[in-house]
Nucleic acid binder design. Structure first.
Length: 289
DNA sequence: AGGTGTTTACTCCGAC
DNA sequence: GTCGGAGTAAACACCT
């Protein structure tokens, strides 16, 4: 929720803490417990990806974002319970490292800052269009450019000879290029020797028409996530959010319509309403989104 | 020093 | 009963 509600679709750990404590008074105490749990989940679950800070963005820790393909791990889009653990396959894990940077490059804010074509704007000569990812809905059969099926079945030579937009963009981002590029990449993401070829491959026009931009997760006309979290199926032990007394559900805080809007507290448990089942459910809503 | 990130281990609980 | 998801504790390393 915290990550998705952010305009950048990524947050540092401290901001995730803040988001939770701002909205859920329950989590303003025993901070060490749930914050440790939160860090554990961020590291442990492949649905969360870590995005390194740029050199000109000093600060502690990295940014955390959602893996572009994690959208279907909730049944019916419900945030209350996961259908399955989102797991990146070994071979695809390499490619997911590229997602981290591509995801960053893809963001309209960064594209604008870099003078790159935005997702909706015209392509700029000399720089390949950044691919769109289909973050939430794998049922369409779409295989993103980094899917292993695409990786192993593609001829990279023509792509490689067409230039290296990655280096150009990284230069604009403040990363050392090009002589230090390989060192930086290997230190940041060891064992990613294929990164350059894969990234530049993905940035060609060839993939420009794929999928839906990340930024449209909550804004696309064909929204794939219900605005209001719904239970997968009613159970006695896990009541729906709307069934809980004294709780206010605000869908806009799950998918805020605009970045300027400040959503009111999502859940405001009344004093003394912290039964185990409820707090446990809140944990699921908070941590596993 | 404190925050951040990773990993392991344990327990609980629900689904099958 | 087994399995897997989830929550928590704890140890450790790394970074600012």
């Amino acid at each position: 929720m915290a990550i998705q509600s952010s305009t950048e679709k990524m947050l540092p750990l401290s901001d995730i803490y803040k988001f939770i404590m701002d909205r859920f008074p329950y989590y303003r105490e025993n901070t060490q417990r749930w914050q440790n749990s939160l860090r554990h989940n961020l590291s442990f679950n492949d649905c969360f990806i870590k995005i390194p800070r740029r050199p000109d963005q000093p600060g502690k820790g990295s940014f955390w974002a959602l893996h572009p393909d994690c959208g279907d791990m909730f049944e019916n889009g419900s945030f209350l319970r996961r259908r399955k653990r989102f797991k990146v396959h070994r071979a695809e894990h390499l490619a997911s490292k590229n997602h981290q940077m591509i995801h960053y490059f893809h963001h309209p804010h960064n594209q604008t800052k870099l003078g790159l074509p935005t997702s909706d704007g015209p392509a700029v000569a000399g720089i390949g269009r950044i691919p769109h990812f289909q973050p939430y809905n794998q049922s369409s059969g779409f295989k993103h450019p980094f899917a292993i099926e695409n990786i192993i079945g593609r001829d990279y030579k023509g792509v490689m000879s067409s230039g290296l937009p990655l280096a150009s963009m990284m230069h604009h981002l403040g990363y050392p290029v090009p002589s230090q590029l390989s060192n930086m990449v290997s230190s940041m993401w060891p064992h990613v020797g294929m990164m350059d070829s894969m990234t530049s491959m993905a940035m060609t026009q060839e993939y420009g028409h794929f999928g839906v931009p990340m930024k449209t997760i909550c804004h696309a006309p064909t929204q794939t996530i219900p605005a209001v979290p719904v239970p997968i199926k009613p159970t006695a032990s896990l009541p729906s959010v709307s069934a809980l007394p004294n709780l206010t559900v605000n869908a806009s805080s799950m998918c805020p319509p605009t970045s300027a809007q400040v959503a009111p507290p999502l859940l405001e448990p009344s004093p003394g309403s912290h039964s185990d089942s409820k707090t446990g459910m809140l944990h699921s809503v908070l941590v596993h989104s």
